[in-house]
């Protein structure tokens, strides 16, 4: 359980985190979403005591992080996979963690196996690791204390598609076993697939907070049919707004209503579903429009595409 309560942090006249409140609950993956520089990392650093809050509070497992007796046994943290001594091997870094936390020595091999780093890779110095391998190692360090809360800042960066799938399954399984996961990302699709709850931040402020299902409910319906014209006419007649998308329409209405209209108009549909993917992206761009460097456009973010 993570509780952030009216957290504010300023740097001179710049407010990096502005009255942020949200909770991340056990058994759920909470996606912390926002463009670069929106305040995600600052919020997470305050949460784990690396940065002092200006005002407000952040607690993990009911306590402020620094009050936990052996914090890494309760909270696994991965803020930056590259923040490791380049001259240490992955195994050595895990050994330091294992010794600091007072864990049995076999946890090191168990964690290497869990994140699929081979024996040979574990003896390599981290300077020779790819970013993906560093993310795996960072996750191993976060998991080594068998914590009940995970705090991960952009953990999917640098992972290949198989790695992203692996991490998603790992986090899903972790939450299903009762763990709390707070996961930040600017990679919309990555968050959307794994998160149960979403917290969207822009310019240091929370702009949306709720379950993924609730937040996406207003995203509209995607409908496809061989010839969209009769359906478009029916929608215009019912005064329902829609936009043309590739081979179909995105309709600002519930799927059931669109289906009924199509039935009444005698239009055979090839696809009818909630427009989730596009919805989250639109929501993200809309909610954070003020903070975007680029003006919102219908094309995916470059960052999103890079995933």
């Amino acid at each position: 359980m993570i509780t952030i309560d009216h957290l504010t942090r300023t740097y001179g006249s710049f407010t990096a985190v502005d009255d942020v409140s949200f909770t991340a609950r056990p058994g759920r993956v909470t996606g912390f979403l926002g463009p670069n520089g929106a305040g995600k990392s600052t919020t997470m650093r305050i949460l784990v005591g690396l940065t002092a809050p200006g005002s407000g509070s952040a607690t993990v497992c009911g306590k402020s992080f620094s009050e936990l007796p052996n914090p890494a046994r309760q909270v696994g943290v991965l803020l930056d996979a590259s923040a490791q001594h380049a001259g240490r091997s992955g195994r050595e870094i895990l050994t330091i963690a294992q010794r600091t936390l007072g864990l049995p020595a076999d946890r090191v091999d168990a964690m290497l196996a869990k994140v699929s780093l081979s024996e040979e890779e574990s003896r390599r110095r981290v300077r020779n690791y790819s970013l993906g391998m560093r993310q795996r190692l960072g996750l191993a360090v976060a998991l080594i204390g068998d914590p009940e809360v995970l705090i991960l800042d952009e953990p999917a960066n640098g992972l290949d598609p198989a790695g992203i799938r692996w991490m998603r399954d790992l986090l899903r399984d972790y939450a299903n076993r009762g763990g709390t996961v707070l996961l930040s990302s600017h990679l919309l699709h990555e968050i959307e697939v794994v998160a149960d709850d979403l917290v969207v931040i822009g310019n240091g402020r929370i702009v949306a907070d709720g379950t993924k299902a609730d937040l996406l409910a207003g995203a509209g319906t995607l409908v496809r049919t061989a010839d969209v014209r009769p359906l478009a006419r029916a929608l215009v007649d019912s005064a329902i707004e829609f936009t043309h998308v590739d081979g179909g329409l995105r309709v600002e209405a519930e799927a059931e209503l669109v289906g009924r209209l199509a039935l009444d108009a005698g239009v055979p549909l090839t696809e009818l579903r909630g427009a989730d993917g596009a919805g989250l992206e639109d929501m993200f761009l809309e909610l954070t429009a003020d903070t975007q460097r680029e003006q919102p456009t219908p094309t995916p973010l470059p960052n999103g595409a890079a995933a």
């Binding site: 690396l50 620094s66 914090p71 890494a72 930056d80 590259s82 923040a83 001594h85 001259g87 936390l101």
Partner: peptide, 17 residues
Amino acid sequence: SEWSQRTGLTTFTFVPN
């Protein structure tokens, strides 16, 4: 090295004091 190699990020989350 805790700063130059940024290992402090891990060290000081393991031991916030």
